[in-house]
Amino acid sequence: MTAVVLDGIVLGLQFGLLGVGLTLVYGLGGVLNLAHGQLAVLGAIAVWLAIGTGLPVLPAVVVGLAAIGLLGFLLDTTLMRPVYARRGDERVLLGLLLTLGVAFIIDGLLNWRYPIASLNISIGGDPISILGVRMRTGSLLASTIAIAAAGLLLLFFRGTTLGRGVRSVIQDEEGARLVGINPASVRNLIFALSAVLAGLVAVTRSMTSPVSASAGIDFTILALIVAVVGGLGSILGAFVAGILLGIVNTVSSFYIGQYITTIVLLAAAALTILLRPSGLLGRRK
């Protein structure tokens, strides 16, 4: 049981990293990015391509993530501009439609150019024992990266002026403008960061199981569930929800079966929304 829960926490931290980007982009600009998972997979395929050119794994990961971050930045400065120029429902709807379009385009391109590509970073070495549980090196490295990334993110948002500036735009955009913060450049930065985090999650997942070019939709759905359960716009909420859902995921796939896990996850999300419509840590309006 300990092993299953520990596995769940490891997986959950990665869920959290996947969800936090989605939640931040939504909190800042009202765009629910339906291409989030496709960006994750595109990041993984970029790493795969970089490795294919003969680069060692670590530089390949850096190059792949930088590329996906740049793409995120470009998407926000070009395609998302008309979205941010609108208000209210119109903005949300246009954001959904445009990002859904981006998702289809990325899926289509990957299916056309790299239909059988999949990233599978194998980390050698013997299993290591933690809390009496034997963990594979790949899974241990994936969790170390996830923990470090989560820690750095929380430090950034709580401890730096720029991080607080980002939170201030989520909490009150007009107040942020009045203290001299440009919401548009904050959105650019966070859209790029969100894409990098999505790519990073695809990379850490590939250390335990292959990430294929067609996995985008699964990542998107997962990110949506995590962000909604945590409360859209809540950074800490995404991590709490990620860890909870990670545990639900591994426990249900261990005791019930993998095929039913997605249903259990969706049921957990539906239950949370019924009990707390604004999510675990979302602010009530």
């Binding site: 002026t161 607080r164 500036g165 909490q171 009150d172 001299g180 602010r283």
Partner: peptide, 25 residues
């Protein structure tokens, strides 16, 4: 500096964080 009637503070942040953001960046 403009202080609007609705104040537009950052509700989820502490008083100290709110004040400090006045000096942004």
């Amino acid at each position: 500096a403009f202080v609007p009637a609705e104040r537009h503070l950052f509700p989820g942040m502490t008083v100290k964080e709110n004040l400090a953001l006045g000096a942004y960046p």
